[in-house]
Design a protein around this nucleic acid. Structure first.
Lengths: 194, 194, 194, 194
DNA sequence: ATGTAAGCGAGACGGTACGTCGTGTCTTAGA
DNA sequence: TCTAAGACACGACGTACCGTCTCGCTTACAT
């Protein structure tokens, strides 16, 4: 008697809870987010949340990642430098600024206290992105656009790391101009040119 | 009544509280650390803690940074690559592994939720280290050991970032060998050598 | 499809639920008894219980009274004192000690909070017993074995009351010897014999 | 700095909580009384209640008994029958009708589920009253106003029991006329007068 | 040397949230 | 059609900390 348009009560509720979680987190911040509050605002019993997620961290992870998961697909225009620039700027625009930025920052913060969140963050978001990046880098390397000596796993870290450092540690804003400067430095290398 | 050997009751108490905080954090983790617990274990009234620190985060920051503050002085042997390697390895050994590693990780995590902690972490630890690093890099650049084009502020980020990325995000262990690979990649640059 | 040997699925289930209720109440006490628990232990849906009884109290009343209802028939040997002694001792033995005693005590306790239970307890158990008692007392009075002045309704209360008082209020054990002492006092009266 | 008129914060709060408990119990009944509700209405943290009483039953016992404890003093006019009548009627008027009646009924009900409440009820209320009653009966017996054979401990039970039976079991109202009828029956005895 | 204040331990207090349990209603799938 | 299973909104449980507050007691300073 139920048609495709109303797939299941359970999924409806799950979505509603995730939406409220994002809303509330944006209003009061992750630290003051509470399962009690999410339940009340969604009009849902606390148990309905605990049945789905074991902790505030797990709920928050789902709430932040679910909408952006199919988000950052990798371009391949043939020009690795342009593609990296495009991809990194997209990531910075999505995760490095409001509205998602503060939530993503809080999510990474939570991962430092909660190993389950750290693991899930890696598996659901970081590793897939890294794999795509490494694959793209490998193609570029094979085409001679990157140094044959370049250690591709490390390349992933040196491309992401500086931005995460600025995002999490010094907490200065992330501009496209900054991305450019990082890319320039990485491409050229630190050693004096002969 | 107080002599040099017991400089001040207040300082004694402060030290005792900081010691307990580290102890307790190592035992139960930052998430389950509580001011109530620190007070009880130290044998101190809660007020005595609140009089000194405004929040658990601030207390924890002091507890983690106080002992390691006079820690990572920069060497200058004349060889910038050797000095960087030495310095980064020292930092990794101190902050990247037990016993201090988990505490430092939690501290950075807390900084994501608490702007005051983020600011204090930067001012008391990150910025001073960065300044020393940049100064050392500048000398090397002037001596021709680094590319004249190198953007020194960015250099600081690309040296630290990859290690923080691995420490905070993928949470894989930090070995000296990994430091070496990062340095190699950064020095050589990603572009193919002509 | 159902024959005499399996009178009805419904009745079977009802009996099973009542049995579990008694079992569980004996194990954990009435206060910790729950419909949820009874359903789980019986292997029955909660609805199947709610369809039959409106509340825990009503279920418990049925569970306690059903087996003992056809219990306390009144003897008439011609000797009213002997009959009262026999009857009261039987009641005390059945309801005043384990295994049924604690359940009956809890049932009366529940009746203090739940008027429906109080009413049902009276109608299904107390009043029928009282009617039989009064009838027996009336015969005895007509035969001259009891004072012609005796107020028979009150007689019922003064025979039962002291035992209930001891059972519910002072919660001291009920022995046959105690029954004897009560009967002696009631028969003789408190006034000095002239 | 504090004078006799403001004895202590603690006692103030205790009294406020007990008052609210009685109020709330009268409004919603014992079954729906909750520690949460009492705390909210009193404007007090739940812990402040749990610090003082281990359970709803214990709190309720205090709330009901505290005001009426110094309540039912025994008269001695020299006429035991008149004194019993006076005393029993006073008890019936206080505990057998609103406002206290329903609370006392609920208290006795709770005692059936909670041994601690049963014990406290006995020690703080029932036994002291019983002791006074027995003492008064003993004087009357020595003066020849009661049968020399009367078993005084049992006398206590047969005086109280019928009223408790009516109060708790049949739950009919308790009138002075009923008290009279019980006393008449008990004084005269059930045996036919020769 | 003696007030007098400041710091202190202890812990009560009003709150908020926790994670769990049971209620009574409702839905779903299977017999 | 009735059932078992269990999701659901709700409300209360009893616990844990929060940050504030009052208590006496002990230091240590200023008179």
């Amino acid at each position: 008697m139920s048609d495709d348009a109303s797939p299941s009560r359970a999924a409806d509720r799950t979505q509603a809870i995730l939406r409220t979680t994002v809303e509330l987190a944006q209003e009061v911040g992750y630290a003051k987010l509470s399962i009690e509050g999410v339940a009340a605002r969604t009009g849902v019993g606390k148990h309905t949340i605990y049945r789905r997620w074991p902790s505030k961290g797990a709920l928050f992870l789902d709430a932040v990642l679910t909408p952006s998961e199919p988000g950052l697909d990798y371009p391949d225009t043939g020009d690795i430098v342009a593609d990296l620039r495009r991809q990194i700027c997209a990531a910075v625009d999505l995760l490095g600024r409001p509205p998602l930025g503060p939530l993503y920052r809080a999510l990474v913060g939570e991962a430092q206290h909660n190993p389950a969140v750290a693991a899930a963050l890696n598996e659901r978001f970081i590793r897939p992105q890294a794999d795509k990046t490494v694959a793209r880098l490998r193609r570029a390397q094979q085409q001679g656009q990157l140094s044959a000596d370049l250690d591709l796993d490390v390349a992933m870290d040196i491309l992401s790391g500086p931005l995460y450092f600025r995002f999490l540690i010094t907490q200065e804003p992330l501009s496209h101009e900054y991305v450019e400067r990082v890319l320039d430095a990485l491409l050229a290398g630190m050693r004096p040119t002969p």
